[in-house]
Design a protein around this nucleic acid. Structure first.
Lengths: 164, 164
DNA sequence: AATATATAGTTGCATGATGAAACCAAATTG
DNA sequence: CAATTTGGTTTCATCATGCAACTATATATT
């Protein structure tokens, strides 16, 4: 049984990431975990997802080292929790949440406000920041070739940046 | 013809975002545009995507106001470019790229380095930042209900944050 | 100007992924 | 210890994607 070609073969960090978390439901499952959901039936209810698909997604995330599947005492119902690798996904989820807040808002106002635990102050909107800590617009950023992509750059060298 | 249920009905900013950019190929198309790709045949070659799917994805992005389809002079081949709404996706793409850099690296080193145009200095890794500008760990952040989600919060009030 | 080729799609069909329902064993509850 | 819930697996129908053939228009060549 041949599967859809994965993005895994592409030598691109974005494609690699998508290969792991880009399938339908996966990011919503992760959102739930960030909100404290731990068990199979909770995901099912929260997401209205088919059991078989949920099982496939959870197993994949465990295989990829993003989730840990653990039973408190031997033989009890398993719980899923984020590994450090999984916690590192938070900027992705928050960037997407902020984009939705701005461009697909709820008419009554912001749905969720993410705050710093300690102070209760809202966090900053996710944005691209220069080395010196200045917020940067898309036009102020370009890509340059690193050691990993010596000569295999797929785009014309002159257009590592769009003129938008 | 019934389609897969979209995530559009969920009152969740992340789900809203996924509904627009969460389908297979969409984020890779957007990546290419950020790198300067403009035309149908360029996407085709760069991504090795089927023409019909590419057409569907591009049309959707245009419909959603993320891309603009324009022909320089009347009747010439169209070009696709990012709107401001589309440019706002940059933090999402960069967050995903940085995660891939860290957790699915190329053995020879970083593939691309994103730098500030003006200075040539690499930008900071995307991260969650407090109001005062301090980098925050996942555990230091929690969600609180905004005006948009008055009473309809789907998770138990006590678990707006996972204990990880 | 006429011809050839590339571009930007569209259409129809085969194949892969997802969804719904039935089923089941082990864990938990009463 | 009986009943129910949980955490799945399996099967089959439906939807999405991939592939190849086809087309009309735009661009390049002679």
């Amino acid at each position: 049984m041949m599967k859809y070609k994965s993005f895994d073969h592409m030598d691109c960090s974005l494609a690699q990431t998508l290969d792991v978390i880009g399938e339908r439901w996966t990011l919503l499952i992760l959102r739930d975990i960030f909100f404290g959901v731990k068990r199979f039936s909770q995901f099912e209810k929260s997401l209205d997802i088919a059991k078989n698909i949920l099982a496939v997604r959870l197993n994949r995330l465990v295989d990829e080292g993003i989730l840990l599947k653990q039973s408190s005492n031997e033989g009890s119902h398993p719980e899923y929790k984020l590994t450090d690798k999984g916690l590192d996904l938070q900027p992705i989820l928050l960037s997407m949440t902020h984009w939705g807040d701005k461009h697909k808002p709820n008419s009554k106002g912001q749905r969720l406000i993410f705050v710093e635990n300690r102070t209760g102050q809202p966090i900053r909107t996710m944005s691209v920041v220069s080395k010196e800590g200045k917020k940067l617009n898309p036009r102020e950023v370009k890509a340059t070739l690193g050691p990993g992509l010596s000569d295999t750059w797929p785009f014309e060298p002159t257009i590592c940046q769009s003129d938008f």
